[in-house]
Amino acid sequence: MQAFEYANPATLPDALGLLASEWGPTDVLAGGTDLLSLMKEYLHTPKRVVNIKGIKELAGIQKTGAGLRIGALVTMDEIATNAEIRNEYKSLADAAAGIPSPQIRHMGTAGGDLCQRPRCWYYRQGFGLLATKDGQPLVPDGENKYHAIFGGGPAYFVSASSLGPALIALGASVKLVSAKGSRDVPAAKFFVIPKDERTREIALRPNEILTEILVPGAATKSATYEVRQKEALDWPLAVAAVALRMNGATVTSAKVVLGHVAPIPWEAAAAGKLLAGKTITAATAEAAGKAAVEGAQPLSQNAYKTQLAKVAVKRALLDAVKARA
């Protein structure tokens, strides 16, 4: 790891004042589970690391008039075990509880989950976000078992965020703050498919800090279903998060968002549309799963993901209506 300066600001303005205006020289540290891995591999070589763990206003989960506020420093364990979230925003609790180990859930933060870099093995080996060598893309003819089936390139990594799909389905937004002010960005606009190596996969700017997540009031039933190869210590192969607004047993509107199938959490609009006006049964859930994966473009080794995503949608829907409203 390259040597760096460790800054330990106690306030948000102090922290913001320590960030550079371009990517590279500075990095924000919270739980550290991703940043340390990136630094060990020399993928990030910051001159200054800004630890934001001491900034008290970034902690805590609060019910507000508009819904729920989740501070960026809230750990994944807190999200998985918080009673309010488990009861009213089940898809978020599901997503956080799905994270591999208690250790990672204790360290990893909500903000870090959204800002973590892709886990694509080409990216982690230094071939960049678009995974190219001598200008040629490596993924389409390479080891693409865990890569995207949506998006169509040139980026083929999958968004690693656990909370992303559930937050988009719930219509959440994130607050991004810089020294000059703050902006609320819908979770759906926070994730970006990069077109070149200079673009980040998230809307955050280098001089900004993601301070909180705002989830609107829960008049919804929601669930997240992850398909994994094993129960412990692994990334999901395919994920579906669903959020349903209901009138009795009838769906008035639905959002279905897939995870680990595209460089961003992938909203399956067709599936949501299909469910409006229906009740959730095994048959409608299956039809929604089918609609969700229409247009998938699997690579040479990952056609299996289409089937897994389809089943994940079905199971998430059936789970959501089982859960209490």
């Binding site: 460790y6 330990n8 204790h106």
Partner: peptide, 15 residues
């Protein structure tokens, strides 16, 4: 009181 991986944590974070 929480189990963590000490390989994914800077010592400085244990202040």
């Amino acid at each position: 009181g929480r189990a963590v991986n000490s390989c994914l944590m800077f010592a400085a974070q244990a202040e």
